[in-house]
Design a binder for these strands. Structure first.
Lengths: 103, 103
DNA sequence: AATATTGATATGTTTTAACACATCATAGAA
DNA sequence: TTCTATGATGTGTTAAAACATATCAATATT
């Protein structure tokens, strides 16, 4: 059903949303085609590690492995890192308002 | 040079050694061919996430992504989880001593 | 010396992710 | 409505992982 972990999938989706990137923008930044990103995010692809890392990089995420027993502690850290921001690269689309603004 | 992260590579190698598995044994348990494991551990292969997860499972590791900023904290957790054992599945080969011992 | 185990390599085949496209329906904005 | 951006989907091609299998040079082990 899903080659990849739910945790990873969710983190990818969530991080992209957090940054305000569209799939196309993430594609442009990571080099991974938008069509792939769509498939990846829907869990239908057994992607290669390099692709996953490429996406993670752009999203300010890092991929790694940890002993199963330390997973709960790690998840709690991740959870707490989630709220506080401090550094959130929101990218502010801020009204492109391009060209003629005759109105 | 290496498609995969050093952290991941090292964790894989280290976890296998810790368990006392040979590459062949890890192969039998994970379903990933020994020849692959060799390539993977030497960093010469851009493997698929499913393979990585398969290996990690057998080694009692878990793969995931975390925000870059929380990496230091996580690494320290992993480090501390490393020494204390408590649950170490050493597998003790303990002398196969099989069959005829006529000598 | 003979045997077994380890990790590293090699070859040939099959499978499939990654790619470049292009298209489509939906939803918002002009 | 028209235009644009989004995410999802499809097709054909190519590069490469995954596979089975076999071999090899070092170490152990007997």
């Amino acid at each position: 059903m899903s080659y990849i972990t739910d945790q990873i999938l969710e983190s990818l989706r969530e991080a992209r949303a957090r940054k305000g990137f569209s799939q196309r923008e993430l594609s442009a930044r990571s080099g991974v085609p938008q069509s792939h990103i769509s498939k990846i995010e829907s869990g239908g692809v057994d992607l290669r590690v390099s692709s996953l890392i490429a996406l993670a990089r752009v999203l300010d995420l890092e991929l790694f492995v940890a002993p199963k027993k330390s997973v709960p502690a790690i998840k709690s850290i991740i959870r707490s890192a989630k709220g506080h921001d401090e550094d959130e690269e929101q990218v502010t689309p801020a009204y492109s308002l391009d060209g003629d603004a005759d109105e």
